[in-house]
Design a protein around this nucleic acid. Sequence first.
DNA 1: CGCGCTATGTGCGTTGTCGGACAGACGACC
DNA 2: GGTCGTCTGTCCGACAACGCACATAGCGCG
Lengths: 272, 272
Amino acid sequence: MSAQELPNMARQIRGGSMLTARYSAASNRLLDGLPPRKRDRFLAECTLVDLALGNILYERGDLIRHVYFPVDSSVSMLAVIDRDRTALEVGMVGSEGMCGHALVLGSDVTPLRALVQGAGTSWRMKAPTFRRQLENVPALHHLLWRYVGVLFGQLAQAAACTRFHVVEQRLARWLLMTQDRSRADSFEVTQEFLAFMLGIRRVSVTIAAGSLQSRRLIRYRRGRIVILNRGRLEAAACSCYRTDLQIYQDGLGARSKFQRALLARATKEGTP
Amino acid sequence: MSAQELPNMARQIRGGSMLTARYSAASNRLLDGLPPRKRDRFLAECTLVDLALGNILYERGDLIRHVYFPVDSSVSMLAVIDRDRTALEVGMVGSEGMCGHALVLGSDVTPLRALVQGAGTSWRMKAPTFRRQLENVPALHHLLWRYVGVLFGQLAQAAACTRFHVVEQRLARWLLMTQDRSRADSFEVTQEFLAFMLGIRRVSVTIAAGSLQSRRLIRYRRGRIVILNRGRLEAAACSCYRTDLQIYQDGLGARSKFQRALLARATKEGTP
DNA sequence: CGCGCTATGTGCGTTGTCGGACAGACGACC
DNA sequence: GGTCGTCTGTCCGACAACGCACATAGCGCG
């Protein structure tokens, strides 16, 4: 866990609308589900940190020391089996979510590895502080319960998706999910890394990515992928992409306009 | 949801040690994690019902009307994709758990189908009553949080297992898990049904089950499977069986001697 | 007893992915 | 401008599981 710390904005510019303005440029959409004043009080206890590609926030079975609320970074949750050699991504967390959900359920060890797959910034809070916040701010606890419920549903979806859908569809879905979280049309990722996330061989990624590229849905070279045609990429992905958005909407939708917009677009543009 | 109701024991024989004695024959091991008096008060609000093979307790997206605490029945949690045609078992609930976990997280719809895969009895409580109990009995809420955390970990494990392990190992694991929950050496299940749960073809089950039978680990005929040699069956299963027990232990272990005993036995007898 | 339903067993070619090995190609850095 | 490490592309055979079709066998029921 080698996250470099950035200046603690929250402590430096306490309270008031200026604070809110600054946050909007560094916001976590899940926390935006809180009433603004509660959210600001919560963020005042956080530190803004930089997450680098490949950082491991938690190893399976670790004690949780911090919780994370990504801003423009994204984190993969990996199920690890066979003595840590093999892993499979079972969930993705970006600015719509949080890492360290076990604390929300009163446990302090995590069953999953958390790996930074998209570099960027994230709010971070110490576990004891977080626990106190949960106790003192029922609205926070309720919000995060629901988020854990969403994660649960998305995890189940990922399990079935991995079983039934072919590599190319899954790759397309992964790219869409990552784009949603990174807030950019292109991002750094090698085929090797992708293969690891999807639990497949690098060669399989080469083939699937090559197919998507030849159809001009994406373009890539040496560790960088560009999304060229999002609409058609959504059509190339399995329905699980849209289902994931739906699950989020069902669980937290009343609180997040962002996901609703994504969903509306996906439903409009995509061809099933 | 055609669960036939049995006489409501709880209301008929209220309070006292006699009640406890009767419950021990019809107990849910998860609820046994509560202090006895709290557990008894909780069960007094429950009805003992009969769950028949194939009953669907919840369909995905359904409003949850009841929660279930199985006694000797077991229930599969299924992730449903592609418009309800395809499904995959992502979790199993028996007397060590509960169905309707979404309520614990403050949601009232369930993201998974719940299907009775082992006939038997179960405690049942109406959702509004359950919600009231959660509010009024913090110990209950804490216990069930932890259980949801356990389910979460087991779900992730199942996802990776399904991806990486071969059919025969997964079948062995399924049989062990079912035996743990049914409290019997043999149970009713067809290959067709098994195939559905594991997300594979019936023919693949025929082959895998045939292999296990020829090695005298199990015996079966026309919808009934008998476990002949548990120790060797554990050796034939993937490590995920033991990991599942470990996850339960880590999350709820201090409260459940039962799982600890199973785990000890698995670790002793099994050959990795 | 035999009918019919359902559960189980077998055959075939096909497909998706695997594992390993190696060749080319980009780009950072000296 | 050349070198080297890393990323990407292509080949091979192998195999688990697939889909489909059809054959056999247990068991309840009239």
